[in-house]
């Protein structure tokens, strides 16, 4: 190596370093900056539409929910973020406790989104509903055998059950709802029943659960419905079907993805405008069809494929509870060996 090459490299390097310091996005003027744990491919088309209609640019940074909350806390009043968006009620509730949101209680939002999908103090607003329910093999299961989440713990399903890992937040929220609805003792019986019935090590993804059912590794599982939607869109004749759980009892466990305006937003009015737009019928239609979720705005219909699965009763448990009970749910699952 010669020094010439070295100096070229160091020159290039210092340029990058200098550039990076000036790179910081000053959220200039009307722009809105969003931190989101909802993935890019699910939010970018929405923001594009918003910009088209209002002329307001939206910058976004995706990341994992926990990371972004931590970053927001550390950035404090200097944060560039005007809005924080995430995909689980537990995360929304936790973000609420960490003092990073400000209350937004506009009439538009109140009329668009029912109150049980919103934070009581208006810190965050649910924007889509995600139902977690039973999926079963059309070939090997008669739906009359199915009823509740707890029923999957019965010995009828020995070596026939596939579950997603307990590390996933959707599993944690579901178990939190079971603790809330049935008490810790009953919940622990349910979890150990599930663990005994497992046909395979819990899967990393909902899509793996359904693949395992199709391949015959197991007969029943639990998934968020939009993953079923993705599967059916790709392979319409897949031999699996959804079953609405707990219809005679508490209703299907639902979770939300949602957003709130940050406490130190530099453009709070813009962020509020975006939040209102996201709750509108137009945005809600895009929201749902992009990812086969249920709209949080009750005034509009679901996507065509989604509505073909029929209507169901939702568990109306206040979603903050999912957040409050999450740690208990995790401890329970770890104690009972649900990996």
């Amino acid at each position: 190596m010669n020094t010439k090459r070295l100096s070229v490299i160091s020159l290039a390097l210092s340029t990058v370093l200098m550039g990076s310091v000036t790179q910081i996005q000053a959220a200039s003027g009307d722009d809105i900056t969003v931190y989101s744990s909802r993935k890019e491919h699910l939010i970018q088309p929405l923001f594009e539409q918003f910009t088209k209609q209002t002329g307001i640019e939206v910058n976004y940074l995706t990341g994992s929910g926990g990371d972004l909350i931590e970053r927001l806390k550390l950035e404090g009043s200097n944060t560039p973020a005007d809005m924080f968006m995430t995909v689980d009620a537990g995360d929304l509730w936790y973000a609420g406790t960490q003092n990073i949101f400000q209350s937004v209680n506009t009439e538009t939002i109140k009329s668009n989104i029912p109150s049980y999908l919103r934070d009581p103090k208006g810190l965050w607003t649910g924007l889509s509903v995600r139902a977690r329910t039973i999926v079963y093999s059309k070939e090997r299961v008669n739906p009359s055998q199915l009823s509740t989440y707890s029923n999957l713990a019965s010995s009828n399903w020995n070596k026939k059950l596939c579950l997603r890992t307990s590390k996933k937040i959707y599993t944690k929220s579901l178990v939190a709802s079971i603790i809330h609805n049935q008490g810790e003792e009953k919940a622990s019986q349910v979890i150990s029943g599930w663990v005994n019935n497992l046909a395979a090590v819990p899967n990393a993804k909902d899509s793996h659960v359904m693949n395992a059912i199709i391949a015959g590794q197991c007969d029943v599982g639990l998934v968020n419905t939009y993953y079923y939607g993705q599967l059916i869109e790709k392979t319409p004749d897949a031999p699996v079907k959804l079953f609405w759980a707990n219809q005679e009892t508490t209703g299907v466990h639902v979770n939300v993805s949602g957003a709130g305006v940050t406490k130190h937003a530099s453009n709070p009015s813009g962020a509020t405008q975006l939040l209102e737009w996201l709750s509108s019928a137009e945005a809600q239609a895009i929201y749902g069809s992009l990812n086969k979720e249920y709209p949080a705005n009750q005034n509009i219909d679901s996507d065509e494929i989604v509505s073909s699965w029929g209507s169901f009763t939702q568990d109306k448990m206040n979603l903050s509870i999912a957040g409050i009970l999450q740690a208990d749910a995790v401890k329970l699952m770890q104690r009972l060996g649900y990996k």
Binding site: Q25, T62, D67, R71
Partner: peptide, 26 residues
Amino acid sequence: YLLRPFGWDTLAIRVFELSSEGLYER
């Protein structure tokens, strides 16, 4: 994923975001 500036999404991040939703093909 945690530290990048705005607009600095990398290929690795795209892989992660899609695969974590089970969209392996994409």
